[in-house]
């Protein structure tokens, strides 16, 4: 590993100043579970590494505020998975957080990092899309907010400008009852990078939000408003047809060694149908009608 300058600013403003000053020669360090590998392999050779974990404003915290659950940038997967409010409002996010790597990884990896890393296989991306998460960004021109759907751009790319960093992920508390499920395809049951990540949410109004990842350059959100997918009484065949239509845009990698394009496409349909079914079953009964 090449050496670098290690900095640990105390304030967001200081971090922004450093980021702005060094531009692409700076790397942010939160959990480090991806960055340290990239540094060791020489895939990234920054001049400056900016450790965010000593910034007071970004200290690990999960707070409820104005109809949002706000997760600070240095909050790790373990804390997210164990938070009762997140378990209550965003169970599919918990399902995705608990399969990010191993216990050891989850004790370090952050939700913000999982999104900022821009991996098409990021486990938490589909639930964040389904739950309509908002990314809070600090930069030289102050704060701005962005839907996670707009924030994710492509492999390794997110919509951060020079000098910007993510300070928190904000999840709007669902206003209507919702059933949601996260599922993934892996090569073994133990920790693995997923060949498909998929989250499905259905709400009491019959709207289905389905997001999938690892089958193209970025995770994709699709919304189905007709109510057919969410209808517990609609036939499997009808739903399968709608799902197939929704998955037409999937563009699995031709070179991936984790799964072939055909298999990935087929498994999207299988996992999509299964996650939909689970989401419907999880939608609170009394309000489902």
């Amino acid at each position: 590993m090449k050496t670098f300058e290690y900095t640990r600013p105390r304030t967001v403003a200081e971090a922004v100043r450093l980021l702005n000053e060094h531009g692409p020669d700076a790397q942010l360090l939160a959990g480090g579970t991806d960055l340290v590998i990239e540094l060791r392999n020489g895939w990234k050779e920054p001049e400056v590494v900016i450790d965010l974990k000593r910034i007071d404003e970004l200290r690990p915290s999960i707070t409820e505020d104005g109809g949002f659950i706000k997760i600070s940038a240095s909050t790790v997967m373990t804390d997210i998975a164990e938070d009762q409010r997140i378990q209550k409002y965003f169970p599919a996010l918990v399902e995705s957080a608990v399969v990010v790597g191993s216990v050891q990884i989850r004790a370090r990896a952050t939700l913000a990092g999982n999104i900022c890393n821009g991996s098409p296989a990021a486990d938490t991306a589909p639930p964040m899309l389904v739950y309509d998460a908002v990314v809070a960004i600090a930069g030289p021109n102050g704060m701005r907010r962005m839907q996670v759907d707009d924030f994710i751009v492509g492999p390794g790319k997110v919509a951060l400008e020079r000098g910007e960093l993510v300070t928190a992920i904000e999840l709007p508390i669902p206003q209507r009852p919702m059933g949601a499920a996260y599922t993934r395809l892996t090569r073994r049951r133990g920790t693995d990078l997923a060949s498909i990540t998929l989250c499905c949410g259905v709400d009491a109004d019959g709207i289905t939000r389905l997001a999938y990842g690892s089958v193209g350059p970025r995770a994709v959100l699709l919304v189905e408003m007709s109510g057919v997918l969410a209808d517990p009484n609609a036939s499997h065949e009808t739903k399968a047809d709608i799902l197939n239509e929704m998955f037409l845009g999937a563009s699995p990698s031709l070179r991936s060694m984790r799964a072939s394009p055909d298999y990935r496409r087929a498994m999207l349909r299988v996992l999509g149908a299964r996650a939909l079914q689970t989401a419907i079953e999880r939608l609170p009964r009394e309000t489902a009608a």
Partner: peptide, 16 residues
């Protein structure tokens, strides 16, 4: 060898 190392060469874990 494309899958050098522990990320893409899978061996059984306690969950397998």
């Amino acid at each position: 060898i494309r899958n050098l190392g522990a990320i893409d060469y899978r061996i059984p874990t306690s969950l397998d």
